[in-house]
Design a protein around this nucleic acid. Structure first.
Lengths: 140, 140
DNA sequence: CCGGAATATTAGTCAGGCTAACTTAGTTGA
DNA sequence: TCAACTAAGTTAGCCTGACTAATATTCCGG
């Protein structure tokens, strides 16, 4: 018998690669990329500053600058300023950005819903039970 | 009450994004990228042809050509030919490639093992039960 | 008020996707 | 039989997304 957490880790590793491929197919051909979708999602609850966005998405600041430049060029977000600190730039969704996010999310969810509908009731329950555990991974 | 598969899909969508970030941290700073690791893994069981590799990794052929070029330059894989069909190129691991794969896998598994060790026994069991279900997703 | 810390951007490099166009090798049918 | 089609790979050119290093700009503490 194998050492339990290690054996599990190998299986998780395999499944992770599989899920990455699934995700790629889920977002292929959409009007925003997977990263852009993620950033738009972060802005849904309200304006964020650049550093916050970079940290939240685990990228360096310059990477986020370029991302936001593109989203701004596309008219999906707008930059603003913090009146209390002239160094910080804030970013918020435009109306168009909010609409685009809604549309992309719809397609995405529909895609996943189709996948999930192919499972039986027990499988969905098993999956649902595991989601909080998966969400906990990587927070340690 | 929400429509069940759709609601589940939303949660899955969120967790997927989380896992992508986890995976990125897992492989950051390693001597091969995540994609290269995947390709090396595909070659572990023996030589493959370019088309097979491209399909398996859900990329176009030219993308795989470039990948293999880099791995070949690094001395991790070698190209060969199919005696029965002069059009096909085969790709196989070199000794160095096999060693590199082993080393990277070890780090990767160790990383995930640490994450999993932070869970309690019940959580690991819940996760283990869900892995086959996750593996089934996207095959429909 | 000056030097250091914090915030963001610019510039330059690289990996990793894509499509279009090309070469080379097999296959097929008039 | 050989001309046309198909299949397998590569090359070239473009884009996104990641990084580091260097450069403003602004804030703050002594």
């Amino acid at each position: 018998m194998r050492d339990d957490p290690t054996h599990l880790a190998e299986q998780v590793s395999t499944v992770l690669r599989h899920l990455v491929l699934l995700l790629r197919r889920t977002v292929a051909g959409q009007p925003v990329t997977s990263q852009q979708y993620g950033v738009l999602g972060s802005l849904e609850a309200g304006p964020r500053r650049m550093t916050e966005l970079a940290e939240e998405h685990a990228v360096q600041l310059p990477t986020m600058t370029v991302q936001i430049n593109r989203l701004e060029d596309a008219g999906l977000v707008a930059r603003g300023s913090d009146p209390a600190d002239a160094r910080v730039r804030t970013v918020e969704l435009t109306g168009e950005g909010r609409e685009r996010l809604r549309a992309v999310r719809e397609v995405r969810i529909a895609h996943l819903t189709r996948e999930l509908a192919a499972l039986d009731e027990d499988e969905r329950a098993t999956l649902a039970a595991a989601l909080p555990v998966l969400a906990k991974l990587g927070r340690s």
